[in-house]
Design a binder for these strands. Structure first.
Lengths: 208, 208
DNA sequence: CTAGCTTTTGAGAGTTACTCTCATTTCATG
DNA sequence: CATGAAATGAGAGTAACTCTCAAAAGCTAG
């Protein structure tokens, strides 16, 4: 179907043939998975089918992705985003930095609309996917905690930093879920700002 | 919410023989599971072994608990806690109410120290358990969101309420994780207050 | 207490994600 | 081209679930 690529801007050539082939296999597996899921749904799609369509053996699929959920969810953008976060001016309030890279991330993901939406759908429909997503959230949390810790002159293992970081991610994830549940109609930029506002200042006065 | 207890305060007799047997089976399965995990660890413990020790068939185990993780994690206290939350004076600030029931929950779970600690250990060691825990967190989140919404005169589906609620749970879960990772030495009451303080007022000035 | 109904249980077969091992192929390098 | 290293495929194995169906156990009327 539509060939999508969650692959980072890789300088494809200039790498050994081996490396290039690995990348090709990786995206072949992913594309096959996306296509099959669109056709039949997540549960109905077996790894064997994925392997077949990607023209590799099932063993290979598992070599590239530890779990079925990972095929859908794994992307290589986390480190990129972290880098951008660290590149922000050191005297900028960390909340401001976070806001910045979130909007950046939205711009990037807007390019891959289909994947973004597929993921959102799977997130609300398939528990295993949602679970895996939250798992990866705590990994992201560690990265983010490091950055926030640096900004605030604290330790990354500091209780306060950790709590703050995960509360942030928890809130943002919920916002994403909200968006997905409501037919993905709302503008994610707007939702993000509203979410961040709550996280920073608490509940605003209601306006009925 | 913080995981507590396994067996509900059941008025055991007065129920039909059928119901009593079901409760017995339930706890038999749970006890068998706890024991086996202590002996061999989580992964090494198969459902078949659990069934054998609990003297039921594997089919029955799955009838009582949808997944292996649920045997360890499921408890019936969430509704009880929610009730207590709703019972708090309506004019009390919701954050204060939350603080109250959290400390209450800690007192309750202190009674079943071993289970609490086993769960904490599993949470940091077994990804599947952690994932399932987070899953249940979002269910709890719905309940909590309802309560907070009522207090603040908002809708439970309100974005702001949902974001706030999940950020709260995210932060508290991280606190729990922190406690578990650090050998469960710290006093959970103290950690809870620190966490809630961060969630309410942001990072306090550091004291190095 | 028994007859008949409903609920719970066990046995067994089947599916699928994932793991491990080993032989074979495919690329890299001197 | 030869030699070593890495990637692949084939196959067998495990364990968590799911489904089905028949036997057993508790409930309820007469």
């Amino acid at each position: 179907m539509t060939p999508v690529h969650s692959t980072p801007p890789a300088d494809l050539s200039q790498l050994g043939l081996r490396e290039r082939k690995k990348i090709k296999t990786r995206t072949a597996i992913r594309d096959a998975t996306y296509a099959l899921i669109e056709e039949q749904g997540y549960e109905a799609t077996t790894v064997e089918q994925i392997a077949e369509r990607a023209e590799v053996s099932p063993s290979t699929v598992f070599r590239y992705f530890p779990t079925k959920e990972d095929i859908v969810l794994t992307d290589e953008y986390d480190p990129v985003m972290l880098e951008e976060l660290l590149a922000r001016p050191a005297d900028e309030p960390w909340m401001e930095s976070v806001r910045h890279i979130l909007h950046r991330a939205l711009d990037v993901s807007a390019v891959e609309q289909e994947v973004t939406r597929l993921r959102a759908r799977l997130m609300i429909q398939v528990p295993a996917v949602r679970a895996r997503m939250m798992e990866s959230m705590s990994v992201t949390g560690r990265l983010l905690a490091g950055a926030i810790a640096e900004r605030t002159g604290r330790d990354a293992d500091d209780l306060e930093v950790r709590v703050l970081t995960m509360s942030l991610l928890g809130g943002l994830t919920e916002m994403y879920q909200y968006w997905a549940e409501n037919g993905m109609r709302d503008d994610l930029h707007g939702l993000t700002d509203r979410a961040l506002h709550v996280l920073e200042h608490g509940l605003p006065p209601k306006k009925p």
